[in-house]
Design a protein around this nucleic acid. Structure first.
Lengths: 332, 332
DNA sequence: GATTGAAAATGAATCGATTCATTGACGGGT
DNA sequence: ACCCGTCAATGAATCGATTCATTTTCAATC
C-alpha cells in the first residue's frame, strides 16, 4: 500500500504538504501542487481513510436509520439520501429499527461509534427515552426523534389540501382513516384534515367527518375499508381519505371485493405518493411528499450545523389521479 | 473520551491486557479480566473504532451495492442483509448503482477505501469491465458481478417449476415474458422455462410457447400484456408467465383495462414474490425467492472466505395464489 | 529448595494521515 | 543594505488500539 510518505518522497516535499494538497482548502503553490499531484497519480495513492478518521475523529459517512427499508416510502427516502450524500462525497450506513424504540437506540448507538459525519433518523415512534448525548449532528426526518431538529413534509397542510379538494368535489360525508395516534405524523395528518373541515363548517359547509384509526399498512386499510363500507351500515361516506397510500390501497382492495366502483361509489385519497400509487387500479389521488427535497433539506441541515433551526417543513403537492371524482348521483 | 489507557490505569494492568480482554479470544486470567471489565463499566469505555481500523485495517462493516433500493425485491434483500449482518455485529453501508456499470464501479471503489469486511454486490449488468483487484471479499448476490462468487436463487429451476405447474393445469398456449436478455438472470429464467417446455414436448405434451422480451418493470409488463392479449390477435395464450412480479403485475393491470378476467380468461404467474404480489387483485401466483436464505448464504460465504466455492444456488418455492387456474372452457 | 517450561502480562513500536509550532523564502519599505 | 512581515513549507508529535518480543509468574518436577 502506498502511503502519504511515499508520495512525499517521490515529490520531494514534506508529508504535511501532501496532506494539504489532498485536502484542498489550503495554500500550496502551483508548482509544488503539480509535483504532488503527479506523484499521487504515478503511485495511484489513495489516502487511508482509517488513519484520517483516527486523527480527525470523523469520516465522510452519514448514518440513516429507518423503521423498515422495505416500506416503499422509506426506501424512496433512502435512495434520495444516498444520492444527495454521494453528491457531497459521502457514503451512507443503513440501519433498520424495525419500528422498535429499543432497537432504534441500539442502532444509533452503534452508528455513533463509527464517528460519522451525522445521522438521519426516521423515528420509529415518539416515545422519548433517555436523551442522547453526542456532538454528532443528528437530524430527524419525517418524524421527530428525541429533541433533534426535524425536516418533514407539512403534514397538516397536505391533509388540509385533501379536505379542501374533497369538499370542492362536492363530498359531504367523508371517512378519515388515521394512522396510529401515538405517532406525531399520524396526529398531524388527522388534525390537518379535521381542522380544515371544522373551518369549512364554520362557514356552513355541512361536512360530516368520521375518523377511524388504524396502522399505516395495507391490511389495516383493507379491514377498515370493509368495515366502513359494509352494506349493513346506515352511514355511507362518499369519500375516504387515508393517512397513507398503503392504507388507501388497502381500501381500494376492500372495495373491489365488495364490488364497489372507485370513484363512482366512493372516492379514495392517499398520502405519500409512493411509486405504487400510480400503478394500482384506478391510479390513486394522493399528496406527494417531496422526497428529494426532504433529503436535500436534511443533509443541508446536517452540514450547516445550524443549531437554531428546530424545524423545516416542506409543502406536499396534491396529485389528482383516477381514484377521486365529483360527487355522483350514484354515491350521493 | 476515555481511552484504553485510562482503563488500563484504573484496573492497574497494561493496555495489552485490556486489549485482549476486549477482543475476547485470548487468555486472560479470571481475576484480571474481572478487574478490567469493572473498569470498563465504570468508565463506560468504548473502543475507538477508527484506531482499531487503522491498526487492523478492517472494520466490522459490510458494503451492499444494489441497482436501486426502491425496487421491492432489492429492499427486501437489503433488509435481510442488514439483519444478518447485525447478528454478526456488523453494520451495513448501502450504495445504489442505478443500474449503471460505471456508477457501480465507482461505488464499489469508494466502499473499498473504507477497509470493509466485505462487499455484497447485486450486479447492475453483466458487462465485464477491468477486473477489480482487492483482498476484500466480494460476493455477488442474485446476479453475478465480475468474477466473484455468486449466491442466487436457482432461476432455471424456478422457471421450470412454473412451466410444469402451468402444464399440469392444462395450459398449452403460453406466453413467456422475459427480462432483458443482456442479463444473466433474465436468460437463466427464460431458458429454464423454455427448456422445461421442450422437455415436455419431447413427450408429446404439445405445448406452444411464445417468448416476448421486456425490461423487468411494471410498465414493460403492461405494454407487453396489452400487446399479447389485444383482441385483434389470432394467437391467444391461456397463460402468461413473467420473469418478474413487477412484469406480471403490469400484465394484470393491462388485463383489467382490457376487461379480461384473471384467471378465467388467462392465468398469470410472476417471479420473486415481492410483498406486493400478495396485495394485488387477484393475488399473484409466483416463485418465492428465499431472501433470508440468500442473505444468510451470502454472508456465510463472505465470513468463511472460502475461495473455492464459485456458486451457491438456493431453490425457490412455487407459491400458488389466485392468479392461476385450471384451463377453463372460456379461455381454452 | 532449585530448576524448568508454559502461561500470563507487559509496554514499546506500529498503523498512516493531520496538525501546528517552527523554519525558511521572498518582497517591500526605509 | 537591512529589517520586517507575510506566506510557504517542514516534520515531529499526535490520534488510540493492537501486536509481539520480552519479562514475569507460578506450578510442576526432581
Amino acid at each position: 500500500m502506498t502511503t502519504i510518505r511515499d508520495v512525499a518522497e517521490l515529490a520531494s516535499v514534506s508529508v504535511g504538504t501532501v496532506s494539504r494538497v489532498m485536502s484542498k482548502n489550503t495554500t500550496v503553490k502551483a508548482a509544488l501542487k503539480e509535483r504532488v499531484l503527479t506523484a499521487v497519480k504515478e503511485l495511484d495513492y489513495k489516502p487511508n481513510l482509517s488513519a484520517r478518521a483516527l486523527r480527525t475523529n470523523r469520516i465522510d459517512v452519514i448514518g440513516l436509520v429507518v423503521p423498515d427499508i422495505t416500506n416503499p416510502f422509506f426506501s424512496q427516502l433512502a435512495l434520495c439520501i444516498e444520492t444527495e450524500a454521494a453528491k457531497r462525497g459521502h457514503s451512507v450506513m443503513l440501519a433498520n429499527s424495525h419500528g422498535d424504540a429499543e432497537t432504534e437506540r441500539r442502532q444509533i448507538s452503534t452508528l455513533l461509534d463509527h464517528a460519522l459525519r451525522g445521522i438521519v433518523v426516521v423515528a420509529a415512534s415518539d416515545t422519548a427515552g433517555p436523551r442522547f448525548e453526542t456532538e454528532v449532528s443528528i437530524v430527524s426526518l419525517d418524524r421527530r426523534f428525541d429533541r433533534f431538529p426535524l425536516v418533514s413534509t407539512d403534514h397538516r397542510d397536505g391533509s388540509a389540501k385533501v379536505a379542501n379538494y374533497l369538499f370542492e368535489l362536492g363530498h359531504r360525508r367523508i371517512a378519515y382513516i388515521a394512522g396510529p395516534q401515538n405517532t406525531e405524523v399520524a396526529r398531524a395528518r388527522k388534525e390537518g384534515f379535521v381542522s380544515r373541515v371544522e373551518q369549512l363548517n364554520r362557514q356552513d359547509a355541512g361536512v360530516e367527518v368520521r375518523v377511524f384509526e388504524g396502522r399505516f399498512d395495507y391490511d389495516s386499510g383493507e379491514q377498515l375499508g370493509r368495515k366502513i363500507l359494509a352494506s349493513s351500515n346506515r352511514w355511507k361516506p362518499t369519500a375516504i381519505a387515508a393517512a397513507s397510500d398503503q392504507l388507501a390501497i388497502g381500501v381500494l382492495r376492500a372495495m373491489r371485493d365488495l364490488d364497489l366502483n372507485v370513484p363512482a361509489d366512493c372516492s379514495v385519497v392517499g398520502f405519500d405518493d409512493i411509486e405504487l400509487a400510480s400503478l394500482v387500479v384506478p391510479r390513486l389521488t394522493t399528496i406527494r411528499q417531496p422526497t428529494e427535497l426532504l433529503a436535500r433539506a436534511a443533509l443541508e441541515h446536517m452540514f450547516s450545523d445550524n443549531e437554531k433551526i428546530r424545524e423545516t417543513t416542506i409543502k406536499g403537492e396534491l396529485v389528482v389521479r383516477g381514484s377521486t371524482g365529483k360527487l355522483s348521483r350514484r354515491a350521493g
